[in-house]
Design a protein around this nucleic acid. Structure first.
Lengths: 212, 212
DNA sequence: TGTACATCAGTGAACGCGCGTTCACTGATGTAC
DNA sequence: TGTACATCAGTGAACGCGCGTTCACTGATGTAC
C-alpha cells in the first residue's frame, strides 16, 4: 500500500512492525494535540492499516495511549540527561551541584515549551498513574534529581536537616512554571518575560534549598 | 415538573432562572469529573429541561463551560481571601507578611486537594485563556499575592532588586505541588507524606524569596 | 524438497454510544391600546 | 379592565459525527513430516 508524504509505504499484507508504527503515529497525534488527540482509529489510518489491526498489538485504546505516554516520558528524561551532559562539569562540587540542578530544571521547562503535547501526555492519567519514585520514568528522573541534591548535601551546601523532601519542592517549582507557561495563565508571555520568569523561579528555588 | 433528590422542582413551563440552574448543574459535573465532564445535555437533563433550552442562555457548550470555569475560579479566590481572614493579623509586619503568604499558599493547595475537579476546571483551556494579571480571577488572586509581596519588600524582608517576578515564582511552586498532588506523580501519597511535602515546598519558597 | 495445516496478522462491515447542534414548533408572558 | 399580539423561553424529534470495539472473515507465514 502506497501512501503520501510522511506516511508509510507497505510492501505486503503483513506490516512487519505495526506495534511500533502505531506508537509512532499516535505519538505524532499526541505531539500535536496532547493525550486527548491520541485516537486509535486515526493512528491506524495513518499507519495505513485498518483500525481492527491495532487490536492485535494493543488490548485497547488506553493501552496504546499508555505506550505513547511512556515514550513521551522517555524523551523528557533523555532531554534532562542530555542537558546535564551538554556543559562541562565544574571543579568546585557546590558549583557543580548547582550547575546540574539548573540543567535539570532548564531541560524540563524547555521540553515543556518545545513539546507541550508530549509534555502533557507524559503526565496524563492512564489506567494506573504511578507514584514518583516507583514508575520507570520518574525513577530515572527522580534519581537524577536525588543524586544531585545528595551531592549538594554532602558538601554542606544544603543543611542535612532540610534535605528530606527537597526533590518534591524543586520538582513542584519547575513543574508549576512549566504548566503555567504552556497552558495556564502565563501562556501569553513574551520571550523576554518568559525567560525572566523562569530565571526568577529557578533562582528562588535554588536560594530556598540552600538556606535554612 | 417534579424531580427526585437533589433535583429541581419546576412549577411551570418557564423555569425562571435557568441560566443559573444550568451553571449549578454543570458545576456539579465539573466538581465530580473536571472540565471534560461538563456536558451540556447532562446539565440540561439534571435541570429538568430539554437540551435545546440551554441555547436560550448560552451560545454553545464552550460558553457554558466558561461560566463554570469562572465560578470555579471565584471559589478559589474566595477560599484564599477566607484563609487570610481566618487567623489574626500579627503585629510584626514581616511576620504578618509571611503569615499572609502561607495562608494564600495553603488555601490554594487545600482547595486543589478538596476540589480537584473544580481546581482543574478553574485552569482549563476555554475559548480565550486569559493572562495572569488580566482576567478578573487572577486579577484578584494576583492582587492578593502582589500586595503581600509588596508589603514584605516595604519592610525590607525582600531585597528590592529581587522583587520583580516573585509573584510568578511563588505561584509556580504552589501550583506545581497542587497539580502533582491531585493528578500527578504525587497522587498516591499518605496524609503524612503529603503534609510534609507541602510544608517543604512552602518553606523552600519562602526561604528563597527572602534571601539574595 | 514439497506439501498440509496451524497459527499469525491482517480486512471490512457493522454496532452502539452519546455528544453538540439545528429545526420547526408551541405554551407563557407582558405590553399597547 | 379586557383583549390582540409580539416576544420570550421552552419542547421533541432528528441529524451528523467520530469514536471504540466486535464480528466473521481471509491472506501470509512458518513448521512438521
Amino acid at each position: 500500500m502506497i501512501r503520501g508524504v510522511g506516511q508509510i509505504i507497505r510492501r505486503g499484507y503483513h506490516h512487519g512492525d505495526l506495534a511500533n508504527a502505531l506508537v509512532d503515529e499516535a505519538s505524532t497525534l499526541a505531539r500535536q494535540g496532547g493525550p486527548e488527540a491520541v485516537v486509535l482509529r486515526e493512528a491506524a489510518r495513518r499507519a495505513g492499516v485498518s483500525a481492527t489491526a491495532a487490536y492485535r498489538h494493543f488490548t485497547d485504546q488506553r493501552d496504546l495511549l499508555h505506550s505513547v505516554k511512556q515514550r513521551a516520558q522517555d524523551r523528557l528524561v533523555t532531554a534532562m540527561e542530555t542537558e546535564i551532559a551538554a556543559s562541562a562539569p565544574l571543579a568546585d562540587p557546590v558549583a557543580e551541584g548547582y550547575r546540574r540542578l539548573r540543567a535539570l530544571g532548564t531541560a524540563y521547562i524547555d521540553f515543556a515549551l518545545a513539546e507541550p503535547g508530549l509534555f502533557r501526555t507524559a503526565f496524563c492519567k492512564t489506567r494506573i498513574t504511578e507514584t514518583l519514585a516507583k514508575d520507570p520514568f520518574s525513577g530515572r528522573a527522580y534519581a537524577l534529581l536525588s543524586e544531585t541534591l545528595d551531592q549538594l548535601a554532602a558538601c554542606g551546601a544544603i543543611p542535612q536537616e532540610r534535605r528530606p523532601h527537597l526533590e518534591t519542592a524543586t520538582w513542584a517549582a519547575v513543574h508549576g512554571i512549566a504548566t503555567l507557561l504552556i497552558d495556564g495563565l502565563l501562556s501569553g508571555l513574551s520571550d523576554e518575560e518568559r525567560r525572566a520568569v523562569i530565571e526568577c523561579t529557578m533562582a528562588v528555588t535554588i536560594a530556598g534549598i540552600a538556606q535554612g
